[in-house]
């Protein structure tokens, strides 16, 4: 039995004095694809930042593949296989697409396998000498994901990858992500608002509310259960 890809135990975290997450527990089995839902400001991004070591919890333990990494710098998390695609993409706007991709590999002392990246996202190959800042939102999102994949993460955390994308683009993205996750045996934590993308990718769905995981249900069941969605997501 392999260790879970991610274990969050009794996590409390916030900014300044304010508490955002309070005693949160979450375990992701290796190879699982889990969606995380919650209303705006529920703390989804905060949770992602904790998974990637950008924020240290004030209490609790973060274990990545069985290793506790509390209070370690973010690059240590990356070296332990966490790849976060941050909300807002954060591509290096002044650098070219290809340089952005190479950085994903260099960061982990790996040689960049651009061929694989262009196989997953063929549209990037055409753009490879363009400055990343000049790409469209969808293209930047692809780039951000591809860049993270260049570092061969074992746990991929996606913070709202569909934000600001056209539905068609979201569908393409979903198909792509499904292939990649299956091919590389990735564990995925997908923070999303878009139910279609969730249904296309995830098998389990967690609802984040009041600083903890309020409910965990199979994705198949949320299609019917409007009450469930309304309870956790409506204003």
């Amino acid at each position: 039995m392999t260790a879970p890809a991610l274990e969050l135990v009794d996590i409390t975290a916030g900014y300044g004095g304010g508490v955002v997450l309070n005693g949160l527990n979450l375990t992701l089995a290796a190879g699982s694809v889990t969606a995380l839902l919650g209303r705006n400001g529920a703390g989804k991004t905060t949770l992602c930042r904790i998974c990637a070591g950008l924020l240290s919890p004030t209490r609790g333990t973060v274990r990545i593949s069985g290793t506790a990494l509390n209070d370690r710098a973010s690059h240590t998390f990356a070296r332990h296989g966490v790849g976060l695609v941050p909300q807002g993409r954060e591509v290096f706007g002044r650098l070219s697409v290809e340089e952005n991709l190479r950085l994903g590999a260099i960061g982990k002392n790996m040689t960049a396998d651009l061929v694989a990246a262009y196989r997953w996202f063929p549209s990037l190959e055409v753009l490879r000498n363009r400055a990343a800042g000049s790409l469209s939102g969808g293209e930047q999102q692809m780039l951000a994901i591809a860049r993270t994949l260049m570092g061969a993460p074992r746990l991929l955390v996606l913070d709202e990858p569909s934000e600001g994308l056209a539905p068609v683009v979201t569908r393409v993205l979903a198909a792509r992500l499904r292939e990649i996750a299956a091919e590389a045996g990735l564990t995925v934590l997908l923070v999303e608002q878009d139910l279609e993308l969730i249904q296309a990718l995830a098998s389990t769905c967690c609802f984040l509310a009041d600083g903890g995981i309020a409910e965990t249900v199979p994705v198949a069941s949320i299609g019917m259960d409007f009450d469930l969605v309304r309870r956790h997501l409506a204003l």
């Binding site: 710098a73 690059h75 990356a78 941050p86 950085l103 982990k108 570092g151």
Partner: peptide, 25 residues
Amino acid sequence: TNRGLATRAVMARPATAELLGFNTD
């Protein structure tokens, strides 16, 4: 060079560079 590229990345977005595994310190 790769190291030069890394340096420019750290300069532009230190937190993102950390996410990709660069030791910004």
